[in-house]
Design a protein around this nucleic acid. Structure first.
Lengths: 103, 103
DNA sequence: TCTATAATTCGATTATATTCGAACTATAGA
DNA sequence: TCTATAGTTCGAATATAATCGAATTATAGA
């Protein structure tokens, strides 16, 4: 069961996080993953966009270090790397999530 | 003495802020404005880039609502709109500034 | 009114992102 | 071994952004 590679937390750059969060679809994905409180498949998110577009956005979220994807069978389970990100950049992701939930 | 137009704080979007902060030069400008604790002219920042490039980045920072520019004579004095941004998106800008000062 | 200074705007070039259909890969289960 | 399912990768089109020299605007001061 081959797994997807992710950057280690010390490779994660603040600019990459900012960039990943600057796109509405990706911000929506991040918000839903946070609120779900459990791992979600790409399909469960259902933002009404083609699979290839979703895949593209997940790739960027992974590269930024925001999302971790575990392959389980035919599904890809996605989770926010919130604890690690908070440790490295305290408050950054948390405050964005708070702002998201207010709007 | 004509002044530059800025968005009102309720027009400011989280994605625009994230986008503005996703570019290293702009992040640097924001960090210096925060640390200076006073208004700075574009020239004082001196990031070793052509004036037209700096002007472009300031335009984006202004449009995102992050920077306010007051014209005084021939100089443009720039300040972070930190109080307003903090009120609307608590912790977002502050945590980014903290992360910047650690790196 | 002339000159110097500060910064913006314009315009062209190049680079980077987004979008999405079609083809492909990997796994589970019949 | 066949089929269905979940997602990725490819490739091409389109859109958006970054870069920077040259021209322009606005002001201060001589």
């Amino acid at each position: 069961m081959r797994q997807i590679k992710h950057p280690s937390i010390d490779q994660v750059e603040l600019t990459d996080i900012m960039y990943a969060l600057s796109e509405p679809t990706r911000l929506e994905i991040v918000g839903r993953l946070a609120n779900a409180g459990r791992k979600l498949t790409c399909g469960e998110l259902d933002l009404n966009r083609p699979k290839s577009s979703m895949s593209h956005h997940f790739k960027i979220l992974r590269a930024a270090g925001l999302v971790e994807t575990l392959i389980e069978g035919t599904e890809h389970m996605n989770a926010l790397r919130i604890a690690e990100i908070e440790q490295k950049f305290p408050g950054v992701l948390q405050s964005v999530l708070t702002a998201l939930n207010k709007s």
